[in-house]
């Protein structure tokens, strides 16, 4: 574990806590894409299939449980909580994410570290995570004004993978024969997809103005 990876995991945890806070505090999920939350639930379930078979550390197992449980809890709230579900932007959150799931799985069948169930599903979860934010970014563009907590959620969710890229560079430089080509390539694509969001987020922060993504 190095400082970049720890910063990445803590930033990722913070983004999830911010989203839980927004939903709990405002009893509303306006501006949040349920499709992105569902994609993340799929990402965590297929990435952590080894949750019960491989024990790496208490930290590792604890974080995996937190990520899976929180993503499922958020999806449940947005679908079934009597108050929260009413504020879901159903008519704006229309990204046909089936293609993202299909394309990620097809790519995982082609490019993986080993041709085994676990490795193919792991690669699938890596590719799917890279594009999982797309429904959320589309929803932010369509819904105009973005509330602070939702904007902060997306910002930290994008930042965490940038820390992981620093972690991979650090490990590549310090650990002999360390490679993470699949996660590294996918992580660069994932972080690049946030580029315009980061730009408008920085502008809104600099001008102390409301975050607004151009339609």
């Amino acid at each position: 574990m190095n400082v970049f990876r720890l910063a990445g995991d803590m930033t990722h945890l913070l983004s999830i806590l911010l989203l839980l806070l927004k939903i709990y505090a405002t009893k509303s999920c306006s501006g949040v894409s349920r499709k992105t939350q569902e994609l993340y639930a799929i990402v965590f379930i297929f990435r952590y299939l080894d949750l019960f078979t491989d024990f790496i550390s208490v930290y590792n197992t604890f974080m995996k449980v937190v990520f899976i449980a929180s993503s499922l809890a958020i999806v449940w709230c947005m679908r079934f909580h009597p108050v929260v579900r009413r504020s879901y932007d159903r008519e704006l959150d229309t990204f046909r994410y089936f293609f993202l799931v299909g394309a990620s799985f097809a790519l995982a069948l082609i490019w993986h570290e080993k041709f085994s169930v676990q490795e193919v599903f792991w690669a699938f979860s890596i590719y799917l995570e890279a594009v999982a934010i797309l429904p959320q970014l589309v929803l932010l563009q369509r819904s105009g004004n973005v509330d602070n907590l939702t904007g902060q959620y997306v910002f930290f969710l994008g930042a965490y993978r940038a820390f992981y890229i620093l972690n991979w560079i650090y490990r590549y430089l310090t650990e002999p024969r360390f490679t993470r080509w699949i996660a590294g390539t996918s992580g660069v694509v994932q972080t690049a997809l946030y580029a315009d969001f980061f730009y408008y987020y920085f502008i809104s922060w600099k001008n102390n103005s409301k975050l607004k993504l151009p339609a």
Partner: peptide, 10 residues
């Protein structure tokens, strides 16, 4: 020896 599945990262 191919790396086993063990993924130490989240």
């Amino acid at each position: 020896e191919e790396s086993s599945f063990l993924k130490d990262e989240l």
